[in-house]
Write a protein that binds this DNA or RNA. Structure first.
Lengths: 261, 261
DNA sequence: CGCGGAGTTGAACGCATTCAAGTCTTGTGG
DNA sequence: CCACAAGACTTGAATGCGTTCAACTCCGCG
């Protein structure tokens, strides 16, 4: 069986029919264990990997071997789509958790260009949203203070899962250690620990046992100065998020100004 | 005349013939003055802008209005290609210098899909290299110290220009202020000033009158921990850079290990 | 000649790191 | 089921990189 529920993973992008077509192009699933190398930098790739389940991270290391995460990928992400046109990656990808990968040969993507232009262009779109997320990471790391960085990252990872119906409104999987959060936010694990303590004491959120309990989503958004335009959500999903993430007061102001933020 | 020298701008990507085809799709040039808004966030776009000459920067601002540059675009860059599939940008683009923009309607790009698949796919490739550069910005800001960040950024901006034959081996245009370098590297203008002083005193490089004098390129690469795999240069251009950027000793080691770094 | 933006420098402050020593969890094997 | 080891988390104290505030110089330009 080659069935894969891409329709669930990308509800905004692929309708059920497209998803079925796309699913036919995948190779059988491959399972990875936690903390395993999934894609190696500088290695020639002939297929694109789709993350069916699990969390993985893309990173580069500095001269002393310290990692900087460049992206955190959640179920439903294509994790190395750049390889389609570039042939190899400039960074490594490791699993955080156990992960299931399904690969689609680059040739299968090529075939879509003529046969399924809509899907083909949607793949391009996906890679552009990825790029937008990358840009926002530069903003987060470059402009926000420690506590805000973490809150902002949490908000992103939560919303990306929420938009795919991978979690409810008040908690979501967050299977990464404090040190890894540090590697993602450009700070040390020790400092992450202190800032997490503050967020917890302020009643905003709590990270425990690989999942994030969100006690005050508007607070998380406020502290993290989180904006979500860069995720290019469907209007439906965005409205759903606004409903739970903005206080009634903020929603009123938003409606008045007509801002699409 | 619709002639535009894309062949020069993207020698690795477009051959002369493709460039000519592509050039036919452009609207007439539009000139911008320094420090002018070129693309506004959240505004619907129906064409993609190509930067014919000049420098422009993409940025987001935090709650207090402080900018974080997300990218610096040089002549030959498509500066808002994401708009093709996303419809609008989540960030603003301002000019650093006077700039000439040529726009290509999204519909013209659409037409390329069937008529000129090679060019169409090359445009995708370009957007993927842009994304790779974005990723590297997260690494730079997240993992490097102040002085290294600046050296690293300089190395990138230099190499990207060098790869397009926009400059020689020992100097390049760098028409941005110290405060703007700070906004790009996630630090203050004051600290940029101090670090620039160090780089100057160490005989590595000197920023003056909108251009960067590179006195010690290997030193710049070393201090900045600069790697260039993420730019996906053509083998020719990469070899040319290695020739001038690595010391003879480092080149020997590189050759021995056979690393493609 | 004077204005304004860019660059420069000094001093005090503070966020985050580093180092270190713990405690708590978790998974594994006896 | 307990013992133990390894990794994750927590906390304190000292250090330091970078910020902030402020004053001043330099330079291009009208």
């Amino acid at each position: 069986m080659k069935t894969i529920r891409i329709d669930q993973a990308y509800p905004e992008v692929f309708d059920a029919e497209s998803a079925a077509v796309l699913a036919d192009g995948f190779d059988p699933p491959v399972v990875f264990r936690p903390r395993q190398r999934i894609v190696e930098a500088q290695t020639a790739l002939t297929d694109a990997a789709y993350l069916s389940s699990g969390f993985v991270g893309r990173y580069r290391s500095d001269a002393l071997g310290r990692r900087q995460f460049l992206a955190i990928q959640i179920p439903g992400d294509f994790i190395d789509l750049p390889s389609y046109r570039l042939g190899y990656l400039d960074h490594d990808i490791d699993s955080f958790t156990a992960a299931v990968i399904r690969r689609m040969p680059h040739t299968a993507i090529d075939a879509l260009r003529a046969d399924q232009p809509e899907i083909y262009r949607h793949l391009w779109r996906i890679s552009l949203v990825d790029a937008a997320i990358q840009r926002y990471w530069a903003f987060r790391i470059g402009r926000l203070m420690g506590r805000s960085r973490i809150a902002n990252l949490f908000a992103e990872i939560f919303l990306r899962q929420f938009a795919r119906n991978l979690c409810g409104p008040d908690r979501c999987p967050m299977p990464i250690t404090q040190a890894e959060i540090g590697d993602a936010c450009g700070m040390t694990g020790v400092h992450v620990n202190r800032m997490l303590g503050e967020l917890r004491d302020e009643g905003i959120c709590k990270l425990a046992a690989g999942s994030l309990e969100i006690h005050d989503l508007p607070g998380l958004v406020r502290v993290g100065q989180f904006e979500w335009d860069y995720l290019y959500l469907s209007p439906t999903k965005e409205a759903e998020f606004v409903q739970i993430a903005l206080t009634p007061d903020a929603q009123r102001k938003r409606a008045l100004s007509g801002a699409a933020e």
